[in-house]
Amino acid sequence: MPLVTTTRTGLVDQVIAQMRELVSSGEWPLGRRIPPEAELVTALGVGRNTVREAVRALAHAGLLEVRQGDGTFVRATSELSGAVRRLCDSELRRVLEVRRALEVESARLAATARTDEDIRELETILGIRDSAVHEQRDREQAVAQDTRFHMRLVDASHNPVLIELYQGLSEAVLSSVASTLDPEASPEQHISHTELLEAVRDGNPERAAAEAGGFLEELLSRIGEDTGT
């Protein structure tokens, strides 16, 4: 999405809106540096102060992160996600507790609301995830596909409010998956999601909820063991 020259009214709000859209659409990817100030000034046809004010506003909202001497980076894809990241930074246990609350109910709903397409896509994603985990060849792929599986399972609940809440947690989910997926573990030590998918496919909401809560409880117990709590 190209930047376009703004009109002279509400300049800061217009710049904020354009930058927010570039972030949420993925045009400015998560974790990447955005164009430098001089380039933004030229592309938008506004002054440096306008650009700086817009950047400050988006940084305050949690979407951008200004690193002195290094530039400005995309920190989150929405205000909700930015707020979650501020609350959850370095708090893996808190993220897992929130995931447990949302994913248990999502699994319960998905067991009765899922479509054939939902199941096919979940099976495909889980197959790719398990292949990457078991062959220990691509940790980045394993993390990405594990995260994708959980996101897609929540989508299968077909509850728009629950889906929106979970999407706001997406970066924290990815970070928690990366933190709990041990590249040195044997394939047998990795948590399986096969039983969870089977419960959803079989239309068994109670078993699906139990499976979703069970693996997160296991992760929480591992953290407790690591910290001695």
Results as ranks from 00 to 15, higher is better:
Ala101Pro: 00
Ala59Glu: 15
Arg94Gln: 14
Asp89Ile: 02
Ala76Thr: 09
Ala111Glu: 12
Glu53Thr: 09
Gly45Cys: 11
Gly127Ile: 04
Thr115Ala: 02
Asp118Pro: 09
Leu109Asp: 00
Glu121Arg: 13
Ser131Thr: 12
Leu80Asp: 13
Arg139Lys: 10
Leu58Pro: 03
Arg56Phe: 07
Leu63Cys: 01
Thr50Gln: 06
Arg114Ile: 03
Ser78Gly: 11
Arg52Ile: 02
Ala107Thr: 10
Thr115Leu: 01
Leu44Ala: 07
Gly47Met: 02
Ala142Arg: 12
Arg100Ile: 06
Glu53Arg: 13
Arg56Trp: 04
Arg85Asn: 09
Leu58His: 05
Asp70Arg: 15
Val46Ile: 12
Asp89Glu: 11
Arg108Ala: 12
His60Leu: 11
Val143Ile: 15
Leu92Ile: 05
Ser90Ile: 00
Ser106Glu: 10
Glu65His: 08
Glu121Trp: 06
Ala142Asp: 10
Arg114Trp: 08
Glu135Phe: 04
Ser78Glu: 08
Val104Cys: 13
Glu103Gln: 15
Arg108Gly: 08
Cys88Gly: 11
Ala43Cys: 06
Gln68Gly: 13
Gly69Trp: 10
Thr115Val: 01
Glu65Thr: 04
Val46Phe: 09
Leu92Ser: 04
Ala111Gly: 12
Gly82Gln: 08
Ile125Met: 11
Leu44Ser: 07
Arg94Ser: 14
Asp116Pro: 03
Glu79Gly: 02
Gly45Thr: 12
Ile125Leu: 15
Leu126Lys: 04
Gly62Arg: 11
Ala111His: 12
Arg67Gln: 14
Arg120Pro: 02
Gly62Trp: 10
Asp130Glu: 14
Leu64Thr: 05
Glu65Met: 04
Arg108Ser: 12
Thr77His: 07
Ile125Val: 15
Phe73Ile: 05
Ala107Ser: 13
Arg114Cys: 14
Arg48Glu: 13
Thr124Phe: 09
Ile128Tyr: 02
Thr124Asn: 09
Arg139Asp: 06
Gln141Gly: 14
Gly71Lys: 04
Gly127His: 07
Val66Thr: 11
Glu103Ala: 13
Ile128Ser: 09
Glu91Trp: 03
Ser90His: 10
Arg114Phe: 04
Leu58Asp: 05
Gly62His: 11
Gly82Asn: 08
Arg108Cys: 07
Gly69His: 08
Arg120Leu: 08
Ser106Tyr: 11
Arg129His: 13
Ser81Asp: 14
Thr124Arg: 14
Ala57Val: 03
Leu87Thr: 09
Gly127Gln: 06
Arg139Gln: 13
Ala61Arg: 15
Val51Cys: 09
Val66Cys: 00
Thr124Glu: 14
Glu53Cys: 00
Thr50Met: 01
Ala43Ile: 07
Thr77Trp: 05
Glu117Ile: 02
Arg99Phe: 07
Val51Arg: 01
Ser90Cys: 01
Thr115Asn: 03
Val66Arg: 09
Ala113Pro: 01
Val143Pro: 07
Ala110Val: 04
Leu92Asn: 04
Ala54Leu: 00
Arg99Ser: 03
Ser78Asn: 08
Glu65Asn: 07
Glu135Ala: 04
Cys88Thr: 15
Glu103Thr: 14
His60Ala: 14
Arg67Lys: 15
